[in-house]
Design a protein around this nucleic acid. Sequence first.
RNA 1: GGCUCAUUGGUGUAGGGGCAACACGUCCGACUGUCUAUUGGAUGCCAAGGGUUCGAUUCCCUUAUGAGCCGCCA
Length: 587
Amino acid sequence: MYRTHNCGELRMEHAEQQVNLAGWVQRTREFGGMTFVDLRDRYGITQLVFNQETDKELCDRAGKLGREFVIQAKGKVMERSNKNPNLPTGDVELIVSELNILNASKTPPFTVEDDTDGGEDVRMKYRFLDLRRPQVQQNIMLRHRIAQEVRKYLDSQGFLEIETPYLIRSTPEGARDFVVPSRMNPGQFYALPQSPQTFKQLLMVAGYDRYFQIVRCFRDEDLRADRQPEFTQIDCEMTFVEQEDILNTFENMMRHIMKYVHNIEIDKVPRMTYADAMRLYGSDKPDIRFGMTFVELNDVAQNQGFKVFDDAELVVGICAEGCASYTRKQLDGLTDFVKRPQIGAKGLVYVKCNEDGTFKSSVDKFFNQEQLKTWADKMGAKAGDLLLVISGVKEKARKQLNELRLEIGNQLGLRKKDDYKFLWVLDFPLLEWAEEDERWVARHHPFTSPKAEDFDKMDTDPGEVRANAYDMVLNGTEIGGGSVRIHDRGLQERVFELLGMPEEESVEKFGFLMGAFEYGAPPHAGLAFGFDRLCSLLGGADAIRDFIAFPKNNSGRDVMIDAPSKIDAIQYEELCIKSVVPEKEEV
RNA sequence: GGCUCAUUGGUGUAGGGGCAACACGUCCGACUGUCUAUUGGAUGCCAAGGGUUCGAUUCCCUUAUGAGCCGCCA
């Protein structure tokens, strides 16, 4: 046995005991005839002490230990004369009698501690060192905990964890596929799954009425801080259930996770329709940690001579409580914020509700005090508040005001990371108009069932058809979503028709599923959670990278193992493929 | 596909048309109670290529790499 205890466990009660510890040298402190060594493993740090008076040779060897050396130390646990209240093990130290260097280490390029001096780049290149840092280990451990609680909960509810294949066939809808050439089938390719969608539905047809999987998914799209080319989903599907059952089951899953991971009890998760979310927050994933909901001002702000408003489809505002004291500079800052090309607003109208009951606005030329008061009343503003108003085409204006609302929320500190507010968003539209292809595409996926009461709109007004689809939102981030699936072949064919997919094509692409649906497909529904994202939210971070042991960078590269890489000519030959990368890019 | 920013020692930053500053780390030395120990000393030529200039790390262009965003991500 290399160790009898770990580096985070020794306390006063262990005093006088003979123990063995093993770990990494965090740092050494030489102090004349004494040497202190901080020994670290993932459980904590314990101080080792060497004294020249006791054993000069041993003390000298300890002084020569470099950072990140792997050592084993045997000795006696003693109460410290100078205790360190900052360390859980700070009451004791190990008086070392035997020191074994298990492995020396090159000097690491950055310090392996929470407050590291290393930048993002070096840390990613030496990810194995970065992963030694306590903070990163906390993240990885949190991920483990959440995964275990998910399994515990779903198992308790009768869910079966079933694996599905990674080498599948390419499907037309959705994101770009990663493809894998098949050596045994020249000229043909597997695709890596964007999600196990069709397989889980087949499992439902097969009678495994409660399925889940914590599973890797692959999408070949451009990346962001919260997007990786391979990411993990908690993928679930249930048979003989309605939307309500799904909502309850998975709301309870989140309740379970919050309770056992963070010891937080969450209330009944509120629900909001997609239409309301758009109207009140301008977003399909509203952050309901704070109010500041949209108020539409068309009736009080239009037709009073201000052309910008009169020409707009929508005039909509928010009331920022207590912000009437914003300076000219701050207001200009907000205006610049919404005018940034990413947001694209033409401008921003503000109204300060002064303490004396008067109003000061950027449109005083066009509106008198009385008129401004009707705005303030409509928005429930009181003295000291600031009204911010945007106008334009409905959808765009809402999107812009949403960005502004979130920005103000940030500025006012209303978006606390440890304040967890869950929300179900329901009744998403079934379809979305794809400008580029000039056709309707499934907003969720093509197996999503339309709401029965909207069936008659499918031919007349496809854009208005709502789906039995739902998203779970946490603090303004979509953490999961799903739908009640179509289990009727006739309805499925009708949806494919709406999507402009001819029968031959749908049979070619989804024939296996359609075929299966002819052999007794039960009603079923499901959803999937973005596991990495959930971990990052519960860990209080923005980047999911911090919660993935070996993430990829912005351009999909693993800088540690330097992937992707070229392959040998022989591999091309075997796979019957040819690279047509232009010369200059071949390097 | 587009936009923005960045690239200075082992690491993180500062600087600025002629001398590269600070901190951490590392190495050598002092010190018997430290725990961001303290203390004395040592340690870099500014991503690459091209241009402007008497002179470039600094200004300009290109490329590469990285970060963030828009498009994209059912």
